[in-house]
Design a protein around this nucleic acid. Structure first.
Lengths: 226, 226
DNA sequence: TGAAGCTGTAACAGCCGTGTCGCAAAGCGG
DNA sequence: CCGCTTTGCGACACGGCTGTTACAGCTTCA
């Protein structure tokens, strides 16, 4: 998420609120810098004040829409300009929503939720997270620390199941039931092999193990696995 | 478009405005009837008053979201309930936008435009874009990096569908449903062949592949496909 | 009516994912 | 320290999935 707002007090307030909602947020009060940050960090959504230093908010909006790299980023305009003509102009320039100051953080969060639900369903509830692992179920993608992790279908389903119940220990039997076809007659030890493959893929970047082995019980997702 | 509003005067005013904007609009003031109409006419967007006869607006919203046939229809709530808690509740129930009476028809039209641009860009007269690909739906033209890409009708519809949901993985069944006639009984593998033809056409200029194959799942549009 | 283009299907080759095995390594209890 | 149990590891063969090509039937347009 990228917040473009030059009012320090409001900016800090919003950053605090959104970080509490698990957003990764960057902030600037300058239009030119906003464009650079948007290119570089490919935010999931942009909150944009109209009256800022450098390039104006409406112009930032226009340029974001024009650049292929950012053309699809959702934008919520966030401004004191409450005239109907301003609102219409903002929306017609390509903003997805337009909120007039003063507004409550709660409403803004709700609107961000509504827009994200529409644009990237994965980000508004269908994304599974644990520690620095992120799974986009719809796009069928997994990232750890922002870096893509290539997984086979079975490894993907296995990780998905673990992410849906983080911390919980599953016996091999339970995992076979949950991850494999329910009528599959498969050797129990096969689970070990897939856990191993999943571990290998996840730890590729030299990071710590996320899967804890519980002797004579099974496996669990656990940030302090080692 | 479906308008659910029991205030006759406001309803007539809005119908007049939207018909002038080339919308095909149906109107009712009753919640139960609204649900039936939504099923039957599959509107592109729903404008929904909170306080109506029969099932309440918020409940209509919830049920539209729950039914598979209407789960993806964009909804704008349109009501006199201006309390922040009402707005948040509306948005969290699945509404895409929330407008408090009184509002100007012009702003509503702008917001309808913003939502449609997001959900069905083709309907809002917008070009579809992803990475360096640009599709003009009306003119039936596709360009990549500014250079025209010749596509057959099926390839065009296939790409269009992918562009409308970038990043998302579609199974072959889903693609057959979305891209081919809904009653077509076609071999699943046929999708592969069309994907290949589309890939070939798009990558003619020696650019990287934009379509990601997800083994045992389907295909997705993805800038980092390889 | 003829040619060109588009579409759906079948066939085949190559590759990736999967399940299993044997052995090494690590816990665990005495 | 020893022996037993459980888990990790590498290798391998099989099977299924996907990419690719060729071809025949069909539509479209001149």
């Amino acid at each position: 998420m990228l917040l473009v707002e030059d009012d320090r007090v409001l900016a800090d307030l919003l950053v605090w609120h959104f970080e509490r909602e698990q957003f990764v947020i960057r902030q600037t009060g300058d239009g030119d810098e906003a464009l650079l940050l948007a290119e570089e960090f490919a935010p999931d959504i942009v909150l944009l004040d109209w009256m800022i230093d450098g390039v104006s908010g409406i112009e930032v909006c226009r340029r974001l829409r024009r650049s292929p790299a950012t053309a699809n980023v959702p934008i919520i305009m966030l401004t004191a300009r409450g005239e109907e003509s301003d609102r219409v102009r903002g929306l017609e320039t390509g903003a997805d929503d337009y909120l007039t100051k003063p507004f409550s953080p709660r409403e803004l969060i709700a609107r961000v939720g509504a827009v994200l639900r529409r644009v990237r369903p994965a980000l508004a509830g269908e994304a599974l997270r644990y520690a620095d692992v992120e799974m986009d179920v719809v796009a069928h993608k997994v990232r750890r620390g922002g870096k893509a992790v290539p997984l086979g279908p079975t490894e993907f389903r296995l990780l998905r199941h673990l992410l849906e119940h983080p911390g919980r220990v599953f016996s091999r039997e339970r995992l076979l039931d949950a991850v494999w076809a329910h009528d599959a007659e498969i050797e129990l030890r096969t689970v070990d092999v897939h856990v191993r493959r999943l571990r290998k893929a996840l730890n590729e970047g030299g990071r710590g193990d996320l899967i804890r082995t519980v002797r004579s019980a099974g496996y669990a997702l656990d940030a302090n696995a080692d």
